[in-house]
Design a protein around this nucleic acid. Sequence first.
DNA 1: GCCGTCATGTAAATAGTTACATGATTAA
DNA 2: TTAATCATGTAACTATTTACATGACGGC
Lengths: 180, 180
Amino acid sequence: MKSYNNTTYAILGILTTDCTSGYSIKQFMDQSLNHFWKISYGQIYPTLKLLVEDGLAEVKSASTSGRADKNEYFLTEKGLATLKNWIEQPIDQVPAERNEVLLKLFFGSHQSPERTVSLLEEYQKTLEARHATYEAIEQGIRHNHHEEQDAMYWLFTLDYGKRVTQAAIGWCEYTLKNIR
Amino acid sequence: MKSYNNTTYAILGILTTDCTSGYSIKQFMDQSLNHFWKISYGQIYPTLKLLVEDGLAEVKSASTSGRADKNEYFLTEKGLATLKNWIEQPIDQVPAERNEVLLKLFFGSHQSPERTVSLLEEYQKTLEARHATYEAIEQGIRHNHHEEQDAMYWLFTLDYGKRVTQAAIGWCEYTLKNIR
DNA sequence: GCCGTCATGTAAATAGTTACATGATTAA
DNA sequence: TTAATCATGTAACTATTTACATGACGGC
């Protein structure tokens, strides 16, 4: 079985929900997977094309009524099988996240402690905003998708985001105390 | 002032320590920044070349004694100024980390709960190993670099890694309880 | 008439990994 | 003598973002 990159599998997965167009895939991503997977149109459209070429999806152009040129994509059996196969493969390696804040902090001895304090304060604010976003997304899922079986899994991923973000906020507070 | 990518600044920063060759930069990275910044030789050598071209570093070829072809790089004043300038710039945006485990979990309804349990158990093991690695690196810094002023900052970044990893392990335990 | 949203797509640039190629030294 | 480590570097490939180009619809 041919293998694809994770971004392709993410799109394949989203096509199992009721998102069918490139545009709505992007919207769905921004709303629900935003905290651990982002994607640009520059990748979505070429990937959809590839999925059709490889028989993993079929496209129906709904250019008739009203708005022109809306392409709707539907998973084929082969597409669903490819998705399921990928999900069941063990993770080969968990890549380390890149963190610019830590990179700057690592070389913190080359700037004043005041600057380092600012760096961490800003980061903490960003993390607090992120945490709030996760809670908003969580509420959105609870209200709009509570009947779907997928929802439980979506909430698990959000819980991850919240816990990890909270830990990072705690680290900011502790580290600030040490520098000040 | 010309701007570079973060990987270039990371190399610039490492050149302020006593790492002077491409090879030792890679080693240092793998030992100390591994948890938030990774880099391959395919980027190190071309970047070092660029630094010299732009006058941020100078190279001395020590091809005389013994081992041939060892290039040693030293930051220029311009290089140090460029590094300091970058450190002091605020972070424009904190990119979300990509997480393949969460991506698979997100689509977990397409596989059996047993498979999902395996996914999380494996992930937890990986995280526990990672946590242990961080503690080992921490001990290494405390023993080998305790006199350096940099060491405090290095330890801060490790503390971050440990806290966030610990939060992720807690999430694994909690989520496994919910699925089982 | 203009702005926001819906909607699709490409080209160029940037970033990064992997595989390959080379060869010396050192310790078992 | 053979494997590990030291050491540098390039080419090809893959991944991803950003900027650009286009245009219709609906509400104000």
